[in-house]
Design a protein around this nucleic acid. Structure first.
Length: 803
RNA sequence: GCGGAUAUGGCGGAAUUGGUAGACGCGAUAGAUUUAGGUUCUAUUGUCGCAGACGUGCAGGUUCGAGUCCUGUUAUCCGCACCA
């Protein structure tokens, strides 16, 4: 009898050997074909690894290990996205420097990942808080600044009342802070901004050239939110000034019955003296400003507004005089901050018109119900009416014609708008990359010289953000006061730091050449390794990290620093691992599973196998301790194959087809995110060995190799025990013969009128007549009546249609 | 409201181009081993039943044949949310 399977011994042994042999070091030999597999590097939180982490990491570890066995030079790296608020908050609370907190957390994460046996090349580990790393984050910022894509702007930002920090739109969820859940209010601050909007079109177009799962592409497109329309100038009656609006429905111009401007629209201030109810408007504006985003959203259904008394506008196409209203359903931050209202054909305008008893004029006919009763927004079938020269046209045609008309008359033009806003890039926090800019009273914002990078984060006494919203760095007078790189006069450093998204926007570039002192990576390394062949990460990063990093990468491409426009060739996404009650794991729900416990009690190989077997990779799945046990049992049965191992080489006659089929299935399943069925196929094969009560050395060898990417330790141990040559991780991936995957006999289903009635076993290439004959025989007297049709699907079934 | 996804046994989940629904695992039942429990092994396990019928959220349709295609509908989850 063989020894029992002791996962502690086996896993420790092989992890040590792999380290000593530098088994998974990425080669600098660029003559081999390359494969770059990437998973999102974690934020090293104080809680340690979550059972959610191993799911994507194991999936791509499988791909990486398989690719190595297939002869590729594989880059499968890991690092730390270590700047960020939780670390800083922990540091404040416990009076420990965030650098120390980060170091401890990283060590814990590294040990945990190491214990799972991942084939990361640890010599390429990166850390966003390392000055040697953030030097290049700052360098990219300077390039953005010099290209005019970084600018400072006074603007209302989302202000988290608890974190005391400005947030990007993407970080505000349902009006509350994504991190701490506190209410977010609007506050005007001077902020560094990145002009991601300038790349909106390129970011949409780039999606057509990459292989991302469809839902990722869809959410990116929706987030960027491109819309085609027109800007039109309405005269303010009796004034020189025009009121410019944006619309996607210029065809409905004849149906305008009023206009609406946002509460912050500058025309209100400009015509202050002529507006008889100015104080009422001012009060309305103040109310709107006080509303948090959350309230704005909550109250969305009930429209509010005030009419501007003393000013009216003139419709440029028919000269009719129309009132102007102020309402917060019009946003200053989109389009021109003013709209033309066509209540008959826009839902919001319709609601507003009904509430304030404004006229509704139908200009697109086709609604079964009067537009007085119900809004009509269908653009596919309607026909223009009451619209002068547009009458009788379809919406599509009318849009085209009216736009031409507007351009001809000089009162409007076609215009593309995006929902995407510029990226708020500064944080009033300590634990982030310092922004390498100096503010000089004479020269304005001046970049520091690249030779001075990295601009080190100085040591401070307190990391607390100040109540007036300034970064803790602002209190560091020695650091803040500097000389202007331009005029050498006295100047002050920027005290805001970069958001956490900065470091993660280019980390995949650094992995290709992580120790380079002269450049973010060498040209040669970038050309060899890019683009990333397969990038897997969470759906929650689709509109943040994924979009930001594509933006930076595209910018670096335009500047000539990287060789390809898109950073990631393929993007997939994994489902979440939920608690055993089907809810999201959280401390408050008490359903958290600690991966350390699973590794201790069942072993890393069991955890890896279980997380791959748990269900379809892209769907969420609930944790089940019984499921873990099942996978452990499977590995123990693999272990015990030693007891029935024969001396025979090659495959036994009766399992040859099964072997070739399994190699084929497992190989393709690993490539297609179907890890669960790959494991099921290996379980089936294992059952066959036990049924036969014997496994040849050839069969054993193949099973161990196929299973190795999922359960690397146990398979490597069994490989050695069986006396196979060399290391399993250096072995070639098994080949299969397509012809040998075909069974020589097949079972054919026999149906009568589509109902399954019998089955017959025939030779694979049996003649049709013979098969039908056999089928009739099998049916016997179950086949009665007149056969009007015989359907024969070779290798599948026979169906007799009987009357 | 808009966009995306999902719906199959007691449970997690399998099912090339429409072609034998329920692979694989869990759980359960019975038996063997054991003083017993656990482990392990063997057998059974969609439902109802005597041969037979019914079964992939629901209602229709196309087809010799539908989990798969079409039309409508319901529920759940995720994302976005006054973007003119």
């Amino acid at each position: 009898m063989t020894a029992l399977y002791n996962h502690h011994e086996v896993e420790n042994k092989w992890q040590t050997i792999w380290d000593e042999e530098k088994a998974f070091r990425t080669s600098d030999d660029h003559s081999k074909p390359k494969y770059y597999a990437l998973v999102e590097f974690p934020y090293p939180s104080g809680q340690g690894l979550h059972v959610g982490h191993p799911r994507p990491y194991t999936a791509l570890d499988i791909v990486a290990r398989k690719r190595r066995m297939q002869g590729y030079n594989v880059l499968y790296p890991m690092g730390w996205d270590a700047f960020g608020l939780p670390t800083e908050n922990y540091a404040i609370k416990n009076h420990i420097h965030p650098r120390i907190v980060t170091k401890n957390n990283v060590e814990r994460f590294r040990n945990q990942l190491h214990a799972l046996g991942y084939s990361f090349d640890w010599e390429r580990e990166v850390n966003t808080t390392d000055p040697e790393y953030y030097k290049w984050t700052q360098w990219i910022f300077l390039k953005l600044f010099k290209a005019g894509l970084a600018y400072k702007s006074e603007m209302p930002i989302n202000w988290c009342t608890s974190c005391k920090v400005g947030l990007a739109n993407e970080e505000v969820v349902n009006g509350v802070c994504e991190r701490c859940g506190s209410p977010v209010v609007r506050r005007v601050k001077s902020q560094w901004m990145l002009k991601i909007t300038e790349y909106a079109d390129k970011l949409i177009q780039g999606l057509d050239t990459v292989d991302y799962i469809e839902r990722v592409k869809v959410s990116q497109r929706n987030w960027i939110g491109k819309s085609q329309g027109a800007e039109v100038d309405f005269a303010i009656t009796g004034k020189e000034d025009k009121l410019r609006i944006y619309t996607t429905r210029p065809d409905t111009l004849f149906g305008v019955t009023y206009m609406v401007v946002s509460p912050e629209h500058p025309m209100i201030e400009k015509y202050k003296d002529e507006i008889s109810n100015y104080s009422q408007l001012a009060e309305y504006r103040e109310q709107a400003a006080r509303k948090s985003d959350f309230e704005r959203t909550e109250l969305a259904k009930d429209k509010t507004g005030v009419q501007i008394q003393g000013l009216t506008a003139t419709n440029p196409v028919n000269g009719s005089e129309i009132p102007i209203w102020v309402s917060d359903y019009v946003l200053m931050t989109y389009g021109t901050g003013a709209i033309m209202a066509v209540p008959a054909h826009d839902e919001r305008d319709w609601d507003f018109a009904k509430k304030f008893h404004l006229p509704i004029i139908e200009v697109v006919a086709g609604s079964p119900v009067s537009v007085q009763e119900q809004v009509y927004t269908d653009v596919a079938t309607g026909t223009l009416v009451h619209s002068g020269f547009l009458d009788g046209l379809s919406v599509e045609e009318a849009k085209k014609k009216i736009t031409e008309y507007l351009e001809e008359k000089g009162i409007g033009h076609s215009k593309t708008n995006f929902k995407l806003r510029d990226w708020v890039f500064s944080r009033q926090r300590y634990w982030g990359e310092p922004i390498p800019i100096v503010h000089c009273p004479k020269c304005g914002y001046v970049p520091i010289d690249e030779s001075e990078l990295p601009l080190m984060l100085p040591e401070v006494e307190s990391y607390e953000p100040t109540d007036n919203g300034e970064s803790p760095l602002a209190a560091m007078e020695e650091w803040v006061n500097t000389t202007c790189p331009c005029c050498k006069g006295p100047a002050k450093r920027e005290t805001d730091t970069m958001p956490q998204w900065a470091g993660s926007s280019w980390y995949f570039l650094r992995y290709t050449d992580p120790h380079n002192k002269e450049a973010l990576a060498s040209r040669e390394a970038l050309e060899y390794w890019l683009p990333v062949d397969w990038y897997n990460g969470g759906m929650e990063h689709t509109t943040l990290h994924l979009l930001y990093s594509r933006f930076w990468h595209r910018f670096l491409y335009d500047q000539g620093y990287v060789p390809c426009p898109e950073p990631y060739q393929k993007r997939t996404s994994h489902g979440m691992i939920l608690g055993s009650n089907g809810e999201k794991m959280s401390k408050s729900r008490g359903n958290v599973v600690n991966p350390d416990d699973i590794v201790r009690d069942y072993g890393a190989d069991t955890l890896r196998t279980y997380e791959m077997f748990i269900g379809a990779f892209d769907l969420s799945a609930s944790w089940s301790e019984d499921g873990v046990k099942g996978c452990r049992r499977f590995l123990e049965r693999v272990w015990k194959l030693q007891d029935i191992l024969t001396q025979e080489e090659g495959y036994s006659k009766d399992l040859e087809t099964r072997m070739h089929q399994t190699i084929k299935k497992v190989s393709s399943d690993y490539e297609n995110l179907k890890y669960n069925t790959a494991i099921a196929a290996m379980m089936s094969l294992l059952n066959d060995f036990y049924k036969k009560n014997g496994v040849t050395r050839g069969e054993y060898k193949t099973l161990l190799t196929l299973l190795n990417p999922v359960a690397p330790h146990i398979t490597e141990e069994l490989w050695q025990t069986a006396g196979f040559e060399g290391r399993l991780y250096q072995t070639s991936w098994p080949e299969y013969d397509e012809e040998k995957t075909q069974e020589s006999t097949v079972e054919i289903g026999v149906q009568v009128n589509g109902k399954m009635r019998a089955a017959v076993v025939v030779q694979k290439d049996e003649e049709k007549e013979q098969v039908l004959q056999a089928a009739r025989q099998a049916l016997g007297d179950k086949l009665s009546g007149t056969v009007v049709k015989e359907i024969y699907v070779p290798g599948r079934l026979v169906n007799f249609v009987v009357k």
